[in-house]
Write a protein that binds this DNA or RNA. Structure first.
Lengths: 231, 231
DNA sequence: ACAGCCAAAAAGTATGACGATTTGGTTTCC
DNA sequence: GGAAACCAAATCGTCATACTTTTTGGCTGT
């Protein structure tokens, strides 16, 4: 699901370098310089740069070169940008932003899911809530992470809103990042587990208000925990 | 703020054609075909296609061609994709999705703005609320639209969350679309105007709860109106 | 000091050649 | 007759090169 070939390789190095600030805002690169740096042809560099231009991270101007745009212009919703920022120096800022976004979106998605979810989705959700409980008790963090991601993604998808659905991967990246960087308790909180169960039950019962409330409690807790960890 | 040159022109025709469904999911294009269709060289076609690939609208495979990806894979948060869909056959679906997104994000943004807005932002917000009232009374729809966009963008920006801030343009596109396509009352509702004022006052007073409530009422109303208009 | 012009620098575009990979048919061998 | 191996064509991928266009900054002349 990544861009392939040499342009993909260039993108995969240049993107993170810019996202991390290693190549700072306002820096000017020349195409030829990039050709040498990556040992590829003009064609390849240009295609990679075009993609970066598409996400507003750089702008190319004749007689000047390729300018790194100010961060405020970047397409911060682009999954690549999010991944690059999560992997680099901007991690905390990115996690904070995403935390607020989850805070806004996930409760709304849970409410919509209670109204629109298919029977299959409801069943799957219930089953995931159970597995979540099991893996949490077993303190199997890897399996727990997988089920947690599946749970939140499913709620977002079941909301019936394509834009919410697309945030599934992003939320997944957040949860993964938080586990990887030790930003969560070693043992998942029993209280949080219970809340996941409540969300599932409420969605199954078609209770939008309750689903929204329980989900809000989950993401509020997650955000609070994050703030505490990040200081 | 658009991609320039020939690739930009190709993108500007090909993107909308795909977004509108004129070139349907699963369709396979050949590079050479596009060269002829647009009268440009390989270089140009390839760069445009790469950008589309970056937004996951197409995938290019050897010996096969350039395949239009299913809509569910597209980067639905990409501003270009949003614009193209708003301009084409998908308009209603896109407006609905964006409506739910606003419903989730704007109240949260208003609450954050009440906590984090700068003094300048608060002043500007107050002033915009006044101008909104004036232009609404004068039934000057164009000026009203401008102020409405500025108001909502400012709240999103003042939230202090970069991701919320980036939705400003998108919300602007929604409001513009709704005015252009006659999806709103000819005379702005006095009640809605009053609510904008309440949002501004609450943010100025640092009252997050009240700001969130008033903003929620605004977007709930907007969404209800939209659903009614779209049937 | 100012205006206008000119030249260099960098990206933009076009084109031809070749490489790599995938697909689908064809042949060959059981 | 079927299956496996092979081969050839189609198409994208990459490179190198030549030429064009735009922009900028300096130079020149008044």
């Amino acid at each position: 699901m990544e861009i392939q070939g040499l342009p993909g390789r260039v993108l995969g190095e240049l993107g993170p370098a810019i996202a991390s600030g290693e190549i700072p805002e306002g820096a000017v690169l020349r195409g030829e310089e990039l050709e040498e740096r990556f040992g590829v042809s003009r064609t390849v560099v240009r295609e990679a740069v075009r993609v970066l231009e598409g996400m507003r991270m750089v702008a190319s101007r004749r007689r000047v070169g390729i300018t790194v745009q100010p961060k405020s212009l970047w397409d911060v919703f682009d999954p690549m940008v999010i991944r690059w920022r999560l992997a680099g120096a901007d991690r905390s800022a990115q996690l904070r932003s995403l935390g607020s976004l989850r805070m806004a979106v996930e409760p709304a998605a849970a409410a919509l899911a209670a109204l629109h979810a298919s029977d299959d989705d409801r069943r799957e959700l219930s089953s995931l809530a159970v597995e979540l409980t099991v893996t949490a008790r077993a303190a199997d963090l890897t399996a727990f992470l997988g089920h947690d991601i599946a749970f939140h993604s499913l709620v977002l998808r079941a909301s019936g809103n394509e834009m919410f659905a697309h945030l599934g991967d992003t939320v997944g990246a957040v949860l993964t990042g938080r586990t990887e960087y030790q930003l969560m308790p070693h043992q998942p909180e029993p209280y949080a587990i219970r809340l996941h169960r409540e969300v599932a039950d409420a969605i199954c019962a078609g209770d939008a208000v309750q689903a929204e409330r329980a989900m809000r409690t989950i993401v509020t807790g997650a955000l609070a925990e994050l703030e505490q960890q990040l200081g």
